[in-house]
Structures are given as C-alpha cells and as structure tokens.
C-alpha cells in the first residue's frame, strides 16, 4: 500500500494500526511509519482513502444521525 503523503510503499500490515473508524466498517486508521501521517485505510481493498487531520471523520456521520427527525 502506498502512503498518499510521502509515497512510502510497504505491505498494509506495516502501516502502524491505530484503531478502527467504526467496528462495522472496513475503514481503519493507520499511521505511516515513515512520515507518521494518520491515514484512513480501506482494509478490504488495501488502499489509503485519505490522510486524517484534526476534526476530520473519514467514516462520515455518526450512526443513527440520519434517523433523527429534526437533526
């Protein structure tokens, strides 16, 4: 897998696993061990979807929000 920030190419498992974005989604947060950027990773396809900065939510909204009447 290739880091979108520094171009580092190593197997997915060699990107430091941090935590899941949501347990029921295949997106996880991993860290490039070369440039230390936090990355959102599609675990099924083994690709980086985006770098994760402060306040960003690569998995979208919280569960259930769509079902809240006036929200």
């Amino acid at each position: 897998m290739k880091c979108t920030e520094c171009g580092n190419v190593v197997p997915v498992k060699d990107f430091r696993y941090l935590y899941n974005a949501r347990i029921d989604s295949s997106i996880s947060i991993r860290q490039c061990t070369k440039c230390e950027t936090w990355l959102a990773v599609d675990e099924l396809n083994g690709v980086v979807t985006q770098a994760v900065g402060a306040g960003e939510a690569p998995w979208g909204k919280s569960a259930g929000i769509e079902g809240v009447a006036a929200a």
Binding site: A21, A57, G64
Partner: peptide, 16 residues
C-alpha cells in the same frame, strides 16, 4: 483523539 472518536462513533438516537 481516540476517545473523542469513540464518543462521536456512538449512535445518535432519535426519540419519538
């Protein structure tokens, strides 16, 4: 950040 994300992950429940 991890705890923050964990709280944001919680389901927002609509009442009524």
């Amino acid at each position: 950040r991890k705890t923050q994300d964990n709280i944001i992950q919680r389901t927002v429940q609509g009442l009524g």
